[in-house]
Protein backbone atom coordinates (compact mmCIF):
# COMPACT_ATOMS: atom_id res chain seq x y z
CA UNK A 1 0.00 0.00 0.00
CA UNK A 2 1.31 3.41 -0.92
CA UNK A 3 1.47 6.10 1.71
CA UNK A 4 -1.84 7.74 2.53
CA UNK A 5 -2.74 10.86 0.56
CA UNK A 6 -4.16 12.37 3.72
CA UNK A 7 -3.36 11.21 7.22
CA UNK A 8 -5.00 12.92 10.19
CA UNK A 9 -4.75 11.87 13.82
CA UNK A 10 -6.37 13.58 16.77
CA UNK A 11 -6.83 16.87 14.95
CA UNK A 12 -7.91 19.74 17.17
CA UNK A 13 -8.99 23.30 16.47
CA UNK A 14 -10.94 25.65 18.68
CA UNK A 15 -12.34 29.11 18.22
CA UNK A 16 -12.47 30.61 21.67
CA UNK A 17 -14.31 28.12 23.84
CA UNK A 18 -15.89 26.33 20.88
CA UNK A 19 -14.13 23.17 19.81
CA UNK A 20 -14.72 23.13 16.07
CA UNK A 21 -12.56 20.05 15.58
CA UNK A 22 -12.14 17.79 18.55
CA UNK A 23 -9.94 14.77 18.06
CA UNK A 24 -10.68 13.97 14.45
CA UNK A 25 -9.01 11.04 12.68
CA UNK A 26 -9.13 10.20 9.02
CA UNK A 27 -7.08 8.59 6.28
CA UNK A 28 -7.58 9.10 2.58
CA UNK A 29 -6.01 6.53 0.28
CA UNK A 30 -4.44 7.50 -3.02
CA UNK A 31 -6.86 7.27 -5.94
CA UNK A 32 -10.11 7.27 -4.02
CA UNK A 33 -12.96 9.71 -3.68
CA UNK A 34 -13.42 10.31 0.00
CA UNK A 35 -16.52 12.17 1.14
CA UNK A 36 -16.85 14.03 4.42
CA UNK A 37 -20.49 14.32 5.42
CA UNK A 38 -21.90 16.31 8.27
CA UNK A 39 -24.30 19.04 9.24
CA UNK A 40 -23.35 22.70 9.07
CA UNK A 41 -21.02 23.53 11.92
CA UNK A 42 -19.81 19.96 12.34
CA UNK A 43 -16.25 20.96 11.53
CA UNK A 44 -16.03 19.77 7.92
CA UNK A 45 -14.87 23.01 6.39
CA UNK A 46 -12.50 23.80 9.25
CA UNK A 47 -10.93 20.37 8.86
CA UNK A 48 -10.57 20.66 5.12
CA UNK A 49 -9.14 24.16 5.38
CA UNK A 50 -6.50 22.90 7.78
CA UNK A 51 -5.63 20.18 5.28
CA UNK A 52 -5.43 22.79 2.50
CA UNK A 53 -3.05 24.94 4.53
CA UNK A 54 -5.57 27.77 4.93
CA UNK A 55 -5.82 27.40 8.68
CA UNK A 56 -3.52 26.46 11.51
CA UNK A 57 -4.44 23.61 13.78
CA UNK A 58 -4.24 23.70 17.54
CA UNK A 59 -3.21 20.10 17.91
CA UNK A 60 -2.89 16.70 16.30
CA UNK A 61 -0.92 15.16 13.51
CA UNK A 62 -1.60 16.04 9.87
CA UNK A 63 0.15 14.78 6.76
CA UNK A 64 -1.12 15.72 3.32
CA UNK A 65 0.89 14.15 0.48
CA UNK A 66 3.50 13.42 3.10
CA UNK A 67 3.89 17.00 4.31
CA UNK A 68 2.54 19.17 7.09
CA UNK A 69 0.19 21.66 5.39
CA UNK A 70 0.94 24.24 8.07
CA UNK A 71 4.58 24.35 6.99
CA UNK A 72 4.45 23.29 3.36
CA UNK A 73 5.63 25.51 0.55
CA UNK A 74 4.98 26.20 -3.11
CA UNK A 75 6.10 22.78 -4.32
CA UNK A 76 3.49 21.16 -2.08
CA UNK A 77 0.80 23.61 -3.17
CA UNK A 78 1.51 22.73 -6.78
CA UNK A 79 0.54 19.11 -6.00
CA UNK A 80 -2.87 19.92 -4.53
CA UNK A 81 -5.93 21.51 -6.07
CA UNK A 82 -8.42 23.47 -4.01
CA UNK A 83 -12.00 24.22 -4.99
CA UNK A 84 -13.48 26.41 -2.29
CA UNK A 85 -17.08 27.22 -1.55
CA UNK A 86 -18.69 30.00 -3.54
CA UNK A 87 -16.32 32.52 -5.00
CA UNK A 88 -16.99 35.22 -7.57
CA UNK A 89 -13.58 36.77 -8.06
CA UNK A 90 -11.86 37.86 -11.27
CA UNK A 91 -15.24 38.80 -12.73
CA UNK A 92 -13.90 40.72 -15.72
CA UNK A 93 -11.66 38.02 -17.14
CA UNK A 94 -12.87 35.42 -19.59
CA UNK A 95 -12.92 31.71 -18.80
CA UNK A 96 -10.04 31.10 -21.17
CA UNK A 97 -7.90 33.94 -19.82
CA UNK A 98 -8.40 32.85 -16.24
CA UNK A 99 -7.57 29.19 -16.83
CA UNK A 100 -4.50 30.15 -18.87
CA UNK A 101 -3.43 32.56 -16.13
CA UNK A 102 -3.73 30.00 -13.34
CA UNK A 103 -1.80 27.47 -15.42
CA UNK A 104 1.16 29.83 -15.14
CA UNK A 105 1.42 29.20 -11.40
CA UNK A 106 2.24 25.50 -11.82
CA UNK A 107 5.30 23.57 -12.88
CA UNK A 108 3.44 20.95 -14.96
CA UNK A 109 0.06 22.35 -15.87
CA UNK A 110 -2.50 20.61 -18.01
CA UNK A 111 -3.27 22.19 -21.37
CA UNK A 112 -5.63 25.02 -20.34
CA UNK A 113 -7.84 24.66 -23.40
CA UNK A 114 -8.21 20.95 -22.74
CA UNK A 115 -9.20 21.72 -19.17
CA UNK A 116 -11.83 24.19 -20.37
CA UNK A 117 -13.15 21.48 -22.67
CA UNK A 118 -13.09 18.85 -19.92
CA UNK A 119 -15.37 20.94 -17.71
CA UNK A 120 -17.67 21.61 -20.66
CA UNK A 121 -17.03 25.33 -20.97
CA UNK A 122 -15.60 25.49 -24.48
CA UNK A 123 -18.70 27.39 -25.63
CA UNK A 124 -18.12 29.90 -22.87
CA UNK A 125 -14.35 30.17 -23.23
CA UNK A 126 -14.56 33.79 -24.34
CA UNK A 127 -17.26 34.79 -21.90
CA UNK A 128 -16.40 36.96 -18.94
CA UNK A 129 -16.83 35.05 -15.72
CA UNK A 130 -19.40 37.50 -14.34
CA UNK A 131 -21.78 36.35 -17.09
CA UNK A 132 -21.58 32.65 -16.18
CA UNK A 133 -24.44 30.84 -14.49
CA UNK A 134 -23.90 29.34 -11.04
CA UNK A 135 -23.24 25.88 -12.44
CA UNK A 136 -20.86 27.17 -15.09
CA UNK A 137 -19.03 29.22 -12.48
CA UNK A 138 -18.61 26.11 -10.34
CA UNK A 139 -17.21 24.18 -13.30
CA UNK A 140 -14.78 27.03 -13.86
CA UNK A 141 -13.76 26.70 -10.19
CA UNK A 142 -13.01 23.05 -10.83
CA UNK A 143 -11.06 23.94 -13.97
CA UNK A 144 -8.89 26.30 -11.92
CA UNK A 145 -8.49 23.61 -9.27
CA UNK A 146 -7.30 20.93 -11.70
CA UNK A 147 -5.30 22.94 -14.24
CA UNK A 148 -2.15 22.38 -12.17
CA UNK A 149 -2.61 18.62 -12.51
CA UNK A 150 -3.01 18.01 -8.78
CA UNK A 151 -2.47 14.62 -7.16
CA UNK A 152 -5.05 15.53 -4.55
CA UNK A 153 -8.13 17.64 -5.18
CA UNK A 154 -10.22 19.24 -2.41
CA UNK A 155 -13.85 19.96 -3.28
CA UNK A 156 -15.83 21.89 -0.69
CA UNK A 157 -19.58 21.44 -1.24
CA UNK A 158 -19.15 21.57 -4.98
CA UNK A 159 -22.73 21.20 -6.20
CA UNK A 160 -24.65 23.48 -3.85
CA UNK A 161 -27.27 25.25 -5.92
CA UNK A 162 -27.02 22.99 -8.97
CA UNK A 163 -30.02 21.78 -10.91
CA UNK A 164 -30.27 17.97 -11.18
CA UNK A 165 -28.90 17.78 -14.70
CA UNK A 166 -25.90 19.95 -13.87
CA UNK A 167 -25.17 17.76 -10.84
CA UNK A 168 -25.14 14.59 -12.94
CA UNK A 169 -22.71 16.20 -15.38
CA UNK A 170 -20.58 17.40 -12.50
CA UNK A 171 -20.49 13.95 -10.93
CA UNK A 172 -19.31 12.46 -14.20
CA UNK A 173 -16.54 15.03 -14.33
CA UNK A 174 -15.39 14.21 -10.79
CA UNK A 175 -15.60 10.45 -11.33
CA UNK A 176 -13.56 10.93 -14.51
CA UNK A 177 -10.84 12.72 -12.56
CA UNK A 178 -10.69 9.87 -10.07
CA UNK A 179 -10.46 7.38 -12.90
CA UNK A 180 -7.53 9.42 -14.18
CA UNK A 181 -5.71 8.86 -10.90
CA UNK A 182 -6.58 12.00 -8.92
CA UNK A 183 -7.36 11.52 -5.25
CA UNK A 184 -10.40 13.54 -4.25
CA UNK A 185 -11.53 14.73 -0.86
CA UNK A 186 -15.07 15.99 -1.04
CA UNK A 187 -17.22 17.65 1.58
CA UNK A 188 -20.93 17.63 1.00
CA UNK A 189 -24.22 17.71 2.75
CA UNK A 190 -25.96 15.94 -0.10
CA UNK A 191 -26.23 12.27 0.75
CA UNK A 192 -27.00 11.17 -2.77
CA UNK A 193 -23.81 12.90 -3.85
CA UNK A 194 -21.76 10.92 -1.35
CA UNK A 195 -23.61 7.76 -2.32
CA UNK A 196 -23.05 8.34 -6.00
CA UNK A 197 -19.45 9.48 -5.94
CA UNK A 198 -17.66 8.36 -2.86
CA UNK A 199 -15.60 5.24 -2.43
CA UNK A 200 -15.67 5.83 1.29
CA UNK A 201 -17.32 8.41 3.45
CA UNK A 202 -16.89 9.76 6.92
CA UNK A 203 -19.68 11.32 8.94
CA UNK A 204 -18.47 14.17 11.10
CA UNK A 205 -20.34 15.44 14.11
CA UNK A 206 -19.14 17.87 16.75
CA UNK A 207 -15.67 17.88 15.26
CA UNK A 208 -15.24 14.11 15.28
CA UNK A 209 -15.69 11.25 12.87
CA UNK A 210 -18.68 9.24 14.10
CA UNK A 211 -18.78 6.75 11.23
CA UNK A 212 -16.50 5.77 8.39
CA UNK A 213 -17.18 3.20 5.71
CA UNK A 214 -18.21 2.64 2.13
CA UNK A 215 -21.59 4.33 1.66
CA UNK A 216 -23.46 1.02 1.50
CA UNK A 217 -22.15 -0.11 4.84
CA UNK A 218 -22.13 3.22 6.63
CA UNK A 219 -23.39 2.94 10.18
CA UNK A 220 -23.85 -0.83 9.79
CA UNK A 221 -26.57 0.02 7.36
CA UNK A 222 -26.58 -3.35 5.65
CA UNK A 223 -26.72 -5.16 8.92
CA UNK A 224 -29.81 -3.41 10.09
CA UNK A 225 -33.14 -5.13 9.91
CA UNK A 226 -35.16 -4.81 6.78
CA UNK A 227 -38.78 -3.79 7.00
CA UNK A 228 -41.28 -5.83 4.97
CA UNK A 229 -44.65 -4.25 4.33
CA UNK A 230 -47.61 -5.76 2.61
CA UNK A 231 -51.41 -5.77 2.62
CA UNK A 232 -53.35 -8.69 3.94
CA UNK A 233 -57.08 -8.91 4.46
CA UNK A 234 -57.44 -5.19 3.84
CA UNK A 235 -54.91 -4.24 6.54
CA UNK A 236 -51.46 -2.81 6.14
CA UNK A 237 -48.98 -5.18 7.76
CA UNK A 238 -45.39 -4.65 8.68
CA UNK A 239 -42.62 -6.94 9.88
CA UNK A 240 -39.00 -6.27 10.80
CA UNK A 241 -36.67 -9.07 9.93
CA UNK A 242 -33.02 -9.84 9.55
CA UNK A 243 -33.83 -12.36 6.82
CA UNK A 244 -36.22 -10.62 4.44
CA UNK A 245 -35.76 -13.08 1.59
CA UNK A 246 -36.81 -16.05 3.69
CA UNK A 247 -39.62 -14.04 5.18
CA UNK A 248 -41.00 -12.92 1.82
CA UNK A 249 -40.70 -16.44 0.38
CA UNK A 250 -42.69 -17.80 3.30
CA UNK A 251 -45.18 -14.98 2.96
CA UNK A 252 -45.67 -15.61 -0.75
CA UNK A 253 -46.18 -19.27 -0.05
CA UNK A 254 -48.70 -18.53 2.67
CA UNK A 255 -50.65 -16.05 0.55
CA UNK A 256 -50.42 -18.29 -2.46
CA UNK A 257 -48.84 -16.03 -5.03
CA UNK A 258 -48.35 -12.33 -5.51
CA UNK A 259 -48.18 -10.46 -2.22
CA UNK A 260 -50.34 -7.31 -2.37
CA UNK A 261 -48.47 -4.00 -1.97
CA UNK A 262 -45.22 -5.72 -1.11
CA UNK A 263 -42.38 -3.47 -0.08
CA UNK A 264 -38.98 -4.42 1.34
CA UNK A 265 -36.62 -1.75 2.47
CA UNK A 266 -33.55 -1.20 4.49
CA UNK A 267 -32.76 2.10 6.16
CA UNK A 268 -31.66 4.62 3.58
CA UNK A 269 -28.35 6.35 3.89
CA UNK A 270 -30.26 9.41 4.94
CA UNK A 271 -31.91 7.59 7.82
CA UNK A 272 -28.63 6.11 8.97
CA UNK A 273 -27.01 9.49 8.63
CA UNK A 274 -29.70 11.26 10.62
CA UNK A 275 -29.26 8.70 13.36
CA UNK A 276 -25.51 9.23 13.31
CA UNK A 277 -25.72 12.97 13.67
CA UNK A 278 -28.77 12.95 15.92
CA UNK A 279 -28.94 13.38 19.66
CA UNK A 280 -29.42 9.66 20.09
CA UNK A 281 -25.78 9.00 19.36
CA UNK A 282 -26.56 6.43 16.71
CA UNK A 283 -28.53 4.27 19.14
CA UNK A 284 -31.64 4.41 17.06
CA UNK A 285 -33.12 5.89 13.96
CA UNK A 286 -35.32 8.39 15.65
CA UNK A 287 -38.31 9.95 14.07
CA UNK A 288 -37.70 8.56 10.63
CA UNK A 289 -40.52 6.57 9.14
CA UNK A 290 -39.75 3.05 8.08
CA UNK A 291 -36.34 2.90 9.64
CA UNK A 292 -35.27 -0.17 11.49
CA UNK A 293 -33.68 0.14 14.89
CA UNK A 294 -30.37 -1.60 15.21
CA UNK A 295 -31.42 -4.71 17.06
CA UNK A 296 -28.14 -6.49 16.89
CA UNK A 297 -29.19 -8.52 13.90
CA UNK A 298 -26.66 -10.95 12.64
CA UNK A 299 -25.27 -10.14 9.29
CA UNK A 300 -25.96 -12.84 6.78
CA UNK A 301 -22.89 -12.47 4.70
CA UNK A 302 -21.56 -9.32 3.16
CA UNK A 303 -24.79 -7.76 2.05
CA UNK A 304 -24.25 -5.04 -0.44
CA UNK A 305 -27.09 -2.95 -1.55
CA UNK A 306 -27.33 -1.10 -4.77
CA UNK A 307 -26.43 2.51 -4.29
CA UNK A 308 -29.06 3.89 -6.57
CA UNK A 309 -32.75 3.49 -6.11
CA UNK A 310 -33.15 1.74 -9.45
CA UNK A 311 -34.72 -1.69 -9.08
CA UNK A 312 -35.18 -1.24 -5.38
CA UNK A 313 -38.75 -1.52 -4.17
CA UNK A 314 -38.09 1.30 -1.77
CA UNK A 315 -39.48 3.84 -4.16
CA UNK A 316 -40.37 6.13 -1.31
CA UNK A 317 -36.77 7.12 -0.80
CA UNK A 318 -36.39 10.79 -1.44
CA UNK A 319 -34.33 11.15 -4.58
CA UNK A 320 -32.19 14.05 -3.51
CA UNK A 321 -32.11 14.37 0.22
CA UNK A 322 -30.55 17.63 1.16
CA UNK A 323 -29.62 18.16 4.74
CA UNK A 324 -28.99 21.80 4.49
CA UNK A 325 -31.37 23.59 6.74
CA UNK A 326 -29.85 26.89 7.62
CA UNK A 327 -28.87 28.89 4.61
Amino acid sequence: MTAAAVHVRDLRKHYGAKRAVDGLDLTVHPGEIFAVLGPNGAGKTTTVEILEGHRRRDGGEVRVLGEDPGAAGRAWRSRIGVVLQSTDDHAELTVRELVHHFARYYPDPRDPDEVVAAVGLTDKARTRTRQLSGGQRRRLDVALGIVGQPELLFLDEPTTGFDPEARLMFWDLIAGLRDGGTTILLTTHYLDEAEHLADRCAVVRDGRVVALDVPARLGDRAQRDAVVRWREGGDAREERTATPTAFVTALAYRLGGEVPDLEVRRPTLEEVYLALIGETDGAGVAGTAGAAPPTGATADGPVREPLGAAGTPAATTPSAPSLETSR
Binding site: G31, P107, D108, Q149, D199, V214, R304, T312
Partner: peptide, 23 residues
Protein backbone atom coordinates in the same frame (compact mmCIF):
# COMPACT_ATOMS: atom_id res chain seq x y z
CA UNK B 1 -41.00 -10.49 -7.09
CA UNK B 2 -38.14 -8.20 -7.74
CA UNK B 3 -35.25 -8.64 -5.44
CA UNK B 4 -32.60 -6.01 -5.34
CA UNK B 5 -29.74 -6.86 -7.57
CA UNK B 6 -26.67 -7.98 -5.76
CA UNK B 7 -24.11 -6.43 -8.02
CA UNK B 8 -21.28 -5.33 -5.84
CA UNK B 9 -21.05 -1.65 -6.43
CA UNK B 10 -18.55 -0.92 -3.77
CA UNK B 11 -15.57 0.65 -5.36
CA UNK B 12 -12.31 -0.30 -3.87
CA UNK B 13 -9.74 2.42 -3.99
CA UNK B 14 -7.86 2.04 -7.22
CA UNK B 15 -5.21 -0.50 -6.38
CA UNK B 16 -2.62 1.17 -8.53
CA UNK B 17 -3.74 4.66 -9.32
CA UNK B 18 -2.34 5.66 -12.61
CA UNK B 19 0.71 7.48 -11.50
CA UNK B 20 0.67 11.17 -12.02
CA UNK B 21 2.91 12.07 -14.90
CA UNK B 22 6.51 12.63 -14.07
CA UNK B 23 6.91 16.00 -12.46
Amino acid sequence: MSTPTTTPVTREPAAAPRGTPAR
